[in-house]
């Protein structure tokens, strides 16, 4: 039964990819390329490229991509469902305890320690994306002359608009995308 196999593979990927994002890549490779041979390695690399270029988490993108190729739309839905089910169960259990015990001093203390750390994690991810956007593939050198001037201009203008006018962020992203379309081509 291909549906059960897909479900079970992506259930495991969902369950063991702790830390999200790139942590899931080796797991997906193991299940999809090595164990079940649903994709060849070159197809897997294409999958990762597509997952980076399109919105959504890599694990969900992979579920859809592999599911579609192996068993059509039904396969995509089954794989995606398998992938999010562990999250749903575990996260809801944690949420239940969070809202029950978040008034306790110890829990307050733990959460108080985690909040500034979360700010740093977001900052770190943001800095990575900024460097990728401004330097592109030459990100390792940090030479000022390697900065892409169009990307730098778009970044600065978008940043000033965000700080000053606080618009809907999606408008800024779409605007920046359209500007990219005009300037890069």
């Amino acid at each position: 039964m291909i549906y059960i196999k897909l479900f079970w593979s992506f259930f495991q990927i969902g369950l063991f990819s702790i830390g999200g994002g790139y942590a899931a890549i080796p797991l997906i490779q193991n299940q999809v390329v090595e164990q079940n041979k649903w994709l060849r390695m070159t197809e897997f690399v294409d999958l990762i490229t597509i997952a980076e270029m399109t919105p959504g988490p890599i694990a969900i993108n992979s579920s859809t991509f592999v599911g579609t190729r192996i068993a059509g739309v039904g396969g995509a839905i089954i794989s995606t469902f398998g992938c999010v089910l562990p999250s749903l169960i575990i996260v809801l259990t944690l949420a239940y305890f969070y809202y029950k015990y978040n008034k306790l001093t110890v829990v307050q203390g733990i959460l108080g320690g985690l909040r500034p750390a979360v700010v740093s994690l977001i900052a770190s991810a943001g800095l990575g994306i900024t460097i990728l956007a401004l330097w592109g593939d030459s990100a390792a050198t940090f030479n000022l002359s390697d900065i892409n001037p169009i990307a730098a201009g778009l970044f600065i203008i978008s940043f000033i608009i965000m700080r000053k006018f606080k618009p809907n962020p999606i408008l800024v992203m779409v605007g920046s995308g359209i500007a990219g379309l005009l300037f890069y081509i």
């Binding site: 597509i50 991810a125 800024v172």
Partner: peptide
């Protein structure tokens, strides 16, 4: 994957996303 217009659009959006994250951080 090889479409130039899609690549330009995505590249432009990347700079916008970076700015939005910087603002929130």
């Amino acid at each position: 994957r090889d479409n130039a217009a899609i690549n330009a659009l995505l590249k432009g959006m990347q700079a916008g996303v970076a700015a939005v994250i910087a603002d929130v951080v």
